[in-house]
């Protein structure tokens, strides 16, 4: 216990009370003005490191979100193209049934063959579809090359691009021409099937039996291709479902991340403002005490 005080000490004590209150007030003022309780990493080193990780995670998630939008667009485009392929093949199948009718004249069969030629051209152009980037979508990784040549030969490879959609989760962007238009090793692809059909329809009247036989085989092969397309559409659907659930997952995670970050760095405004008011009262009291005590002196009475 200090029993004696110097005059300077007395004055300093009053002054310190004022400057301390001012310092605390300034800190609060800055926090309220910025809305952040952390003004620098040293305010809470642990929170600062966590925030760093959370910000990186959030950036990564935004990237994944954009990637998913892109994959979604690509799968939708593929789905539309495959749907058109399916229509074309179904039409070809109808035509092959019509073409087997013995009542038809050679000229009728020629008309059907011409339509099948048209369908093949349509299929070729569908097979060589490109995306917004000008990339051929069914060429595997040979995106700068059309998937099929004029005579229906596959020019791509079997590498389908994978895209990051979450940490350690990738999704395939689409399918290769092989998945869509080929029927397996050594077997005719859909373009060859249509060529065969058209060629068979153009066979002479004397070769009815041969024609019917070949058309029968081709029709069966077409059925297989159409089934293959149905399986593909299921695969696309599965991927879109995966994409949707990942999107929902990311949204939830995004919300959690943002909330955690806010807890770490954002200020509890109501309590900060009430503290600010309290500190202002403290400062005022310190100032008044200072003025009052400093005006008291024995010398006034001498």
């Amino acid at each position: 216990m200090i029993t004696r005080m110097s005059s300077a000490q007395l004055q300093n004590a009053g002054l310190r009370a004022i400057t301390d209150a001012q310092t605390q007030l300034a800190t609060l003022q800055q926090q309220v003005a910025t809305g952040k309780k952390l003004q620098s990493a040293s305010d809470d080193p642990n929170a600062a490191v966590q925030l760093l990780e959370l910000r990186s995670e959030l950036t990564l998630m935004q990237t994944h979100q954009e990637n998913m939008t892109l994959v979604d667009a690509a799968l939708s485009q593929e789905e539309a193209v495959i749907s058109s392929v399916n229509d074309a093949l179904n039409r070809a199948r109808e035509l092959s049934i019509q073409g087997r009718n013995e009542i038809l004249a050679q000229s009728d069969r020629e008309a059907i063959a011409t339509e099948i030629d048209g369908l093949k051209e349509q299929l070729l152009s569908l097979a060589n579809s490109t995306n917004f980037n000008g990339e051929s979508i069914f060429s595997g990784s040979r995106t700068d090359t059309p998937a099929y040549s004029e005579d229906g030969v596959y020019q791509g490879d079997d590498l389908v691009r994978e895209i990051n959609i979450a940490r350690a989760v990738t999704i395939k962007l689409g399918h290769t021409g092989g998945d869509v238009f080929e029927r397996g090793e050594g077997e005719a692809n859909v373009f060859q099937l249509l060529d065969n059909l058209a060629e068979t329809l153009r066979l002479g009247a004397g070769e009815t039996d041969v024609r019917l036989d070949i058309m029968q085989t081709n029709a069966a092969a077409l059925d297989e291709s159409i089934d293959q397309l149905a399986a593909l559409r299921t695969s696309i659907g599965t991927r879109m479902t995966l994409l949707d659930s990942q999107l929902a997952l990311n949204d939830g995670l995004n919300f959690e991340l943002t909330k955690t970050m806010s807890n770490l760095e954002d200020l509890d405004m109501p309590s900060a403002i009430s503290e600010l008011n309290l500190k202002m009262v403290t400062l005022q009291a310190a100032q008044q005490t200072f003025v009052k005590t400093q005006s008291m002196s024995l010398f006034d009475y001498l």
Binding site: I2, T3, R4, M5, S6, S7, A8, Q9, A13, S297, L298, F299
Partner: peptide
């Protein structure tokens, strides 16, 4: 404070 309480001048 401890030093001033011994060494400092008190005007009163």
């Amino acid at each position: 404070d401890r030093r001033d309480s011994v060494q400092g001048v008190n005007l009163e």
